[in-house]
Amino acid sequence: MSLENAILVGVFDGFTWIRCVGKGSFVTSPVMKECAENRIAAGERCLVIDLQACTGMDSTFMGQLASFSARLSKLGATGGVQIAGAGERNRNSLEDLGLDCLLEIDPPAALWRGHANEVRGLLEPYLLGRPPACWTGPSTCWNRTRSSPPRMRRMPASLRVSSESSKKR
């Protein structure tokens, strides 16, 4: 997959950010699926799908978004799947298929609201079968010994949440 069509990710305290660059299609869907499934298996309950740089979506890609929402709903997740930066074209595509009933499109009270550009600057490419270095290895970006959600090492202070405030969500 080229950088023209890529999936970029970041793990933050309270959510995982997945950014689609280029067309969201059957080409990028397996990468996004693996990334989301790994994060859900690790306990993540809020996925933010960033469509700001997404030039369009096919049915495979939108089907993946619906499947993430269904899976998180079955797990009783309160965050679910949130869409950031949908834009008019992508919003219309999601609404035409009724996915706006399953996904939160640009939710006004989202934890990341007002910090999207900051978050986008911290993302790393996700390659099929090879999660970003910050997910594994000795220089891990998150502390696996704590029960709270992972925090990126370079996470902006404005996005950090205390364990007390994350319990209230």
Rank of each mutant, 00 (worst) to 15 (best):
L123C: 15
I7G: 01
F61L: 00
V9W: 03
R19W: 02
S147Q: 05
F61Q: 04
E118L: 13
P30N: 03
V119L: 09
E44D: 15
G87D: 06
C134E: 15
V48E: 03
L159P: 04
D13A: 14
G85H: 08
L128P: 04
A84M: 03
G76Y: 08
L111T: 07
N92C: 05
R19S: 10
A84C: 10
N92P: 01
N117M: 08
Y126L: 10
H115K: 08
L51D: 07
N5T: 15
L122D: 04
V161D: 08
G87Y: 07
C35F: 01
M57L: 11
Y126W: 15
M32P: 01
S165Y: 07
L111H: 11
K74Q: 13
M62H: 05
L103G: 04
L94N: 02
G129L: 05
P138D: 12
K33D: 15
L94S: 04
K168G: 07
W135E: 11
S163A: 11
F68P: 04
K33E: 11
L3K: 08
M32K: 00
E124T: 09
W112L: 09
L72M: 12
N117L: 09
S69G: 04
S2Y: 02
M62R: 15
A133P: 04
Y126R: 06
G43P: 10
R151I: 00
S147Y: 07
T136D: 11
V11P: 01
G121I: 01
K168P: 04
S69L: 12
E88T: 13
R146A: 11
C35M: 09
R113L: 05
R151S: 14
E104G: 08
G85T: 13
P138A: 10
Q52E: 14
N5Y: 10
E164M: 14
T136M: 09
R144M: 12
L65R: 05
R120Y: 03
C46Y: 02
A157W: 04
M1G: 13
Q82D: 06
R151A: 04
Q82M: 10
